[in-house]
Amino acid sequence: MASKIEKIYMALIAMEKDGGTDVSPSILVITFLYLVAVLSVPLYAPQKLIWLAAYPIIASEVYGIGYSRILYRSLWILPLLAIIGMFNPILDHTEAFRINGLLISRGWVSFISILLRGVLALQAVVIMVTLTGFLGVFNLMMRLGFPKVLCTQLLLTYRYLFVIMEEAINMKRARDSRGYGRKSYPLGMWGRFIGQLLIRSTQRSIRIHRAMKARGFSGVFPLVSIKGWDKKAWITFFGWIIVIVLLRFVDFSYYFKALIRN
């Protein structure tokens, strides 16, 4: 049976392998703009984020990925965000507003804001990676003039993550096969496990890097084929920019209310 770490590993690999179907440089810029839009929303105005939430939905449907997949892949970050945002409701009790007399503090408002912000940002990134694969993202960054060495570093760091996971899977299998169905291990054993894992994955990374050098790798990752900025790329590019700017700056609720009133 696949362990949790194997499942994560498979999901990451699948995500990466599916990518590359539509590697157009515009997606990187669009995603970046969207992130700026999301992060620039004031902390105490999470209602403005609601409209920006439309982008991942529209984009995932337009690109045929399906929003449920994106949602599923982005929710794992919630606990992490909850830890980051946890202190806001604890520390900040000043009143933000009341719902039927129930006091909602600014702390809770900013907490919600952090959760939403994180999930939305991640969704946009997941859409991009689903479209291009991580390799595609790094290649696009290079295309757009990011320093090649930096991109290669990022890419290698990212690959290192896989190496660690592969080694962990192997070690876990080896351990379980001799563990006679044992489910938990003493703390000291975990310490040794992690130490061993780091040594093994470092050794393996050295060998991988060596094999890369043997095939002419000189510190800069070779570009995979990427589409240029053709007419279609420009059109989608401006289309998305307009959508994002509208979602960020126009208060649709105002028009909705007006519509309902009429």
């Binding site: 392998k17 390799l135 690959r159 991988i208 094999a211 790798f217 070779p222």
Partner: peptide
């Protein structure tokens, strides 16, 4: 190399085989 795991590190096999020529 003695261990193929050290040579295959790209998302797909094709990318691995194309790695050298691209370099």
């Amino acid at each position: 190399f003695q261990d193929p795991e050290d040579m295959l590190f790209m998302p797909t096999i094709y990318d691995d085989v194309a790695f050298g020529p691209r370099n």
